[in-house]
């Protein structure tokens, strides 16, 4: 299996590290040899059609001086020369244009590559179109890492809930807002104070709107609804309400009756919504800290609840790697 990794952020670096560490195990257990032939950064790429030395790339102090570095190499331009089976698209999410991820995915499919992605943008905006394109060229797009990081959802439904109809999906899909609400509850502090603390600790971005206004959760909900509920929908179809207006007094009122306030993403009866909701203290949504939780309602298996890490480099890389292996096994 020859792969190209596009993007060089936390998830990409973790993936390269895990690939280097697990290559022997992957070969022994699954009989799959994964060769990384390209790693694309913003300003160029490491290219070796015989397979790159991943340890060297991760530890490189001055990457431009590496012999495999090709200045200004762009995936869309040189994809045809890579003789690659699978493009791993890990560039940052953009919910306005979905670029550069969208072009990368289209290019990869155009050259007959399968695609694995952790980038929510292209699927949140163009899920139906991209799946149709993949179908036309008889290739696959796998995207386990786009929603709830390490928690297997799409694989779970595809491989172990076959013939089940998914009736609804409800969950906490953003760890940052869950952290903020958990701290507001335990410390009785206002939103702004906890946000500053989260930014200081690196749990929230300098521009927090992506998380606290529910943009990230809405993008994930769109992907879940398309893929699991078979509902053709787009980012703009989500009713979205953030958590900026929640006050410690409201949390206290909720607590008095045994409720917590959680930022939930819900796809049910054709309606997609991301909003704060009251959940009972003992309920499956009452997870604290930065954890994610997803509850699937199905016709045969009934209710399933999954809790796990929704972010983190290695956790997300776990999902990406599993998708790569699934494609490698299918290609044999």
């Amino acid at each position: 299996m020859r792969i190209a990794v596009i993007g060089f952020g936390t998830v990409a670096k973790s993936l390269l590290k895990v690939l280097a560490e697990k290559s022997k195990l992957i070969l022994d257990e699954y009989g799959v040899e994964i060769k990384t032939v390209g790693v694309f950064k913003k300003d160029g790429a490491f290219i070796n059609t015989n397979g790159l030395d991943l340890e060297k790339i991760i530890n490189s102090q001055n990457y431009r001086s590496e012999e495999e570095w090709v200045e200004a190499a762009n995936f869309n331009k040189i994809a045809g020369e890579l003789n690659c089976d699978c493009a791993v698209e890990l560039t940052p999410t953009n919910v306005e244009t979905s670029e550069p991820g969208l072009s990368h995915i289209k290019t990869a499919l155009g050259y007959g590559m399968d695609v694995v992605t952790a980038n929510k943008g292209p699927l949140a905006l163009y899920y139906p179109e991209l799946m149709e394109l993949a179908r036309q060229v008889k290739r696959r797009i796998l995207f386990e890492a786009t929603v709830a990081g390490a928690i297997p959802l799409f694989n779970l439904v595809r491989n172990t809930l076959r013939a089940n109809r998914i009736i609804s999906v409800k969950g906490i899909l953003n760890g940052t807002t869950n952290y903020i609400l958990s701290r507001m509850t335990s410390e009785k502090l206002p939103f702004k104070t906890v946000l500053k603390e989260a930014q200081r600790l690196g749990f929230a971005e300098a521009d927090p709107s992506y998380d606290v206004d529910g943009i990230d959760a809405a993008a994930k909900l769109v992907i879940l609804s398309n893929a699991l509920l078979r509902k053709e929908c787009r980012f703009k179809d989500v009713n979205r309400q953030g958590i900026r207006d929640i006050t410690p007094e409201a949390i206290e009122l909720a607590r008095k009756d045994g409720f917590l306030i959680k930022h939930l993403a819900i796809s049910e009866d054709g309606v997609l919504e991301v909003a704060p909701r009251l959940v009972e203290v003992g309920s499956s949504f009452a997870v604290s800290g930065s954890l994610n939780v997803v509850k699937l309602q199905t016709d045969l298996a009934k209710d399933l609840t999954l809790i796990g890490r929704g972010a983190g480099g290695v956790e997300t890389a776990s999902s990406v790697l599993n998708d790569i292996l699934e494609l490698a096994i299918l290609r044999r």
Partner: peptide, 9 residues
Amino acid sequence: LYLIRSVRE
């Protein structure tokens, strides 16, 4: 006004 509803499990 900002409305917070309960969630049905």
